[in-house]
Amino acid sequence: MRRLLGVTVVLAGMALAFWLVLGPSSDWEGAARFMHFALLLFCFLVIGGGVRLVFPDKSEDDAAETVG
């Protein structure tokens, strides 16, 4: 279930990043340009978080041994 959520988050982040790069007009000016850049950086953080959901640092077996 956790991996499916991770894949969904990665795909959503990629879709938003592709839309930001290829979709809207590139004549954003002033504060909108900085907001555009910040939103694109946030997409990269979302993609990274989704990858961590798919491939966690510790395997589930190691976590079960630590708890129990």
Results as ranks from 00 to 15, higher is better:
Met1Phe: 10
Arg2Asn: 09
Arg3Pro: 07
Arg3Trp: 05
Leu4Trp: 03
Leu4Thr: 08
Leu5Trp: 07
Gly6Asp: 02
Thr8Cys: 02
Thr8Trp: 04
Val9Lys: 01
Val9His: 03
Val9Arg: 01
Leu11Gln: 02
Ala12Glu: 00
Gly13Arg: 00
Met14Cys: 03
Ala15Pro: 00
Leu16Ile: 09
Ala17Gly: 08
Leu20Met: 05
Leu20Thr: 06
Leu20Tyr: 02
Val21Glu: 11
Val21Leu: 01
Gly23Ile: 06
Gly23Ala: 03
Pro24Ile: 11
Pro24Tyr: 03
Ser25Ile: 07
Ser25Trp: 14
Ser26Lys: 15
Asp27Phe: 09
Asp27Met: 11
Glu29Phe: 03
Glu29Tyr: 05
Gly30Asp: 05
Gly30Phe: 04
Ala31Met: 06
Ala32Trp: 06
Ala32Pro: 00
Ala32Met: 07
Arg33Gln: 12
Phe34Leu: 15
His36Gln: 07
Phe37Ser: 14
Phe37Leu: 11
Phe37Trp: 14
Phe37Thr: 15
Ala38Asp: 10
Ala38Ser: 10
Leu40Ser: 12
Leu41Ala: 14
Leu41Glu: 15
Phe42Arg: 02
Phe42Trp: 12
Phe42Lys: 02
Phe44Gly: 06
Phe44Leu: 07
Phe44Thr: 08
Phe44Gln: 07
Leu45Val: 04
Gly48Tyr: 05
Gly49Asn: 13
Gly50His: 00
Gly50Glu: 01
Val51Thr: 06
Arg52Tyr: 08
Val54Phe: 09
Val54Glu: 04
Phe55Gln: 08
Pro56Asp: 05
Ser59Met: 13
Glu60Gln: 12
Glu60Asn: 13
Glu60Phe: 14
Asp62Cys: 12
Ala63Val: 15
Ala64Trp: 14
Ala64Ile: 15
Thr66Ala: 11
Thr66Gly: 07
Thr66Ile: 13
Thr66Arg: 13
Val67His: 08
Gly68Glu: 12
Gly68Met: 03
